[in-house]
Design a protein around this nucleic acid. Sequence first.
RNA 1: GUGGGUGUAGCUCAGCUUGGUAGAGCGCCGGAUUGUGGUUCCGGUGGCCGAGGGUUCGAAUCCCUCCACCCACCCCA
Length: 414
Amino acid sequence: MIRAVKGTRDLLPPSTAAWNHVESVARRVFHAYNYQEIRTPILEETQLFARGVGEQTDIVTKEMYTFEDRDGTSLTMRPENTASVIRAYIEHRLDQRPGVQKFYYMGPMFRRERPQKGRYRQFYQIGAEAIGSESPAIDAEVIEMVVDFFEQAGLKGFTLLVNSVGDSNCRPAFLERLRGELKSVAGQLCEDCQRRAVTNPLRVLDCKVPEDQAIIDKLPSILDHLCEPCRLHFASMRQFLDDRGIVYEVRPRLVRGLDYYMRTTFEVLHGSLGAQNSVLGGGRYDGLAESLGSKVPAPGIGFSIGEDRLVMSVEEQEPAATLDLFIAPLGAAAQREAGKLARDVRREGYSTEVAPEGKLKRAMELANKLGARFALILGDEEIASGRYALKNMQSGVQEPVSREQLAQQLAIAK
RNA sequence: GUGGGUGUAGCUCAGCUUGGUAGAGCGCCGGAUUGUGGUUCCGGUGGCCGAGGGUUCGAAUCCCUCCACCCACCCCA
């Protein structure tokens, strides 16, 4: 048998109800902050991600679905959406539009990783980008929106982490300092950290090995090494968050894997997800446009939500769609009559199913299994009298009803 | 890329240690006489036991190889 490709999966009902729930809450909340939807292509030139995400990142070096098109250009299925949105912003000169440009998106992304819990090769992200302002007020608003969204989506017990990773002015100096300190203590760290001390020093700060913590705690903190503009930006953003009573934790060791992040970074954690406990990550990326080769500046901040994980956490039984009416016709004449009745009832907005021909007993069993609110029996008697036999499947009460009474019954408790 | 776990009916699993040609529950289908569901009772459908090879008179069971899925590492949303 042909099966779904490794790392991809079918989303089936009833769990698709939870996906729709999450997505509709996102649209509603984002619209309240004046964000509008943007849809960018799934395929982009490989260069976009190589330059945007970072040539040396694992994503680019070994986790992208990249192939050569027939004309020789290298194409890649998007591993994330921020670079595409910035590309579109520049390509369509959206900087010429009035005000901060606020976009949200949702859809599949692709990374060729080894699948595990909450981590797939085709995964789904919901995200947003606010482009065109360097103001810390925007950072705070984006973060506020994130919290608003998770609350409304019904996610319980999440933690918001914020940090500043500095900018091209102060980060290099800090990195130098960090490397220097690491040289003297690396020998005492775990194997992974010894490697990271060389390849990706910031990652050492994020190490979870208990024995390493004492040493890591003594390493320099980025927050103590921010340049004045970055320090003010972070302080101002925090002020805005405090003003709105948003609860967060400053985590100076919060590190981002993508090269384009600067200044504000943030993350939302949620337990019960196994090792993959992060449901959202985001940050500011003021230099991204330039690194894509644009003369048009596009300072911005954004985030993306791991929808697969969020749905997993929120899947507290979205009530499955209910079937309002199940029609059981008896005989050929009734079958035709049922078709017309179903058409009319559906146009009134009620979900309706017509039983296939067969025994009434079978039809009633099916009505029960489908969870229909009402079953309507349509036989010669009913056609002759013009009154349907309508049975309330929950109470078991059955009574003859006119067409008008049927409408009334359906309207009750809908 | 690395490590561990698991592969038996549509689903959840037992059987494997101590080889003797496959089981349960749920689901699905049918029945308990007339045009009535849920509960109950009865019956039925359904499996190259992940694939290939080996040992053996005989393998779901023991051995080897491969594959798939899951979890974790790396890394990351």
